[in-house]
Amino acid sequence: MKLYKVAEQFAAWLVAVIVLSLLLVPIVMIVLTSLTPESFPTIPDGDVTLYWYSEMLSNTELMQALVTSFLVATCAAILSGIVGTVAAIGFVRSEISYREELATLMLLPLMISPVITGLAIIQFSSQADLPSGYPTLIIGHSILTLPYVFLIVRSRLVTFDDDLREASRVLGANGLETSLNITLPVISPTVISAMVISFVVSFGEFTATQFLIAPDATTVPVIIYTMLRAGLSPEISALSTLLIAIMVLGALISGAVTRST
């Protein structure tokens, strides 16, 4: 029996190692090829260099795309955080008919292909006479990230201790005061974590974004795709490594905030 448990644990560890290898090896290769001294992406066999990172930082177009991605992702995270939190509170606290069916509609941007979502947003922007560029990008990314905030905050509200709300009401606070002074402070770490996830999703969004960009507002994923059409380059690996670092940092922040709840 003991031998069986050891074999079971070994098999579990082996599967975990294989899965992690499949996930991490491509990422490690991107990082390594960004350090090559060659003019094409290859794993360095000796010397390593940060030359391609210097080239990336001196590329005005890439830096502008980074700024655009950062601004759009920040605005989208804030907007989706506000709207998603209010919507989650409303769906959990209200007694409206067909509540679950309406909540499912909030998840449509996750279920529909980003291509369709991008086309729908650009057609809406055209009909509403919204200027292209930042306004369209921010609205589009807010729509795409809203379901993440809604799902995460709603799941936290489902386990919320209603005795806290009842105590607040007994002490004379109205519904708005209870939400501002009790509900929001308790769920704020969850909201922050959801907004960080929204930022990461927005920063890496490509499929729908390619329909929403403008000459003066292009994001990093679109720039990478454009550069790839001209051929592989270690500069692309350097830029991809920077994106990986941003995504990992966002995941660490989200995990740290979640653990603090």
Rank of each mutant, 00 (worst) to 15 (best):
L239Y: 03
I224T: 07
D47F: 01
G46D: 11
A76I: 08
V15Q: 08
L107G: 02
E61L: 10
S132D: 11
A230V: 12
T241S: 15
V153H: 02
V153G: 02
N59E: 09
A120Y: 04
I121N: 10
C75S: 13
S240V: 07
I246L: 13
W52S: 05
V200G: 02
S202P: 08
M195I: 06
G90K: 09
T60D: 13
L50W: 09
S168D: 03
L14K: 04
F10S: 12
T218N: 10
V149D: 10
S198R: 03
L146S: 01
H141M: 13
V149L: 11
A167P: 10
I182C: 12
K2R: 14
S21C: 14
A7C: 10
C75E: 10
T159R: 09
R229E: 15
R259E: 12
M247A: 14
S193R: 06
S80M: 05
I78P: 09
E100A: 14
L176Y: 07
I197N: 01
I139F: 11
P37F: 03
L35C: 09
C75Q: 10
S168L: 02
I213N: 01
I143F: 06
G172V: 08
V158H: 04
G231K: 12
L3D: 13
A245S: 14
G204H: 03
L62M: 15
G231A: 09
T241I: 08
L232I: 14
T60R: 14
S260D: 07
M56W: 06
S188H: 02
S198L: 11
I223P: 00
E205Q: 13
V115I: 15
T207I: 15
I78T: 05
L3P: 05
V257F: 05
I197M: 13
E55R: 13
S69T: 15
R165I: 14
F70Y: 06
G175V: 04
I246E: 06
T117Q: 05
G255V: 04
L180P: 04
Q123G: 00
P44A: 01
T49V: 11
L50A: 14
K5P: 00
A238V: 13
E95T: 12
L144C: 02
I223H: 02
L22D: 03
L23D: 02
P189R: 08
T42E: 11
P147S: 07
M29T: 11
Q123Y: 09
T241M: 11
M29A: 11
L20M: 14
F91C: 08
G84D: 04
A87T: 15
L105R: 10
V28K: 01
A87N: 08
T241W: 09
V67P: 00
V48P: 06
L71P: 00
F124R: 01
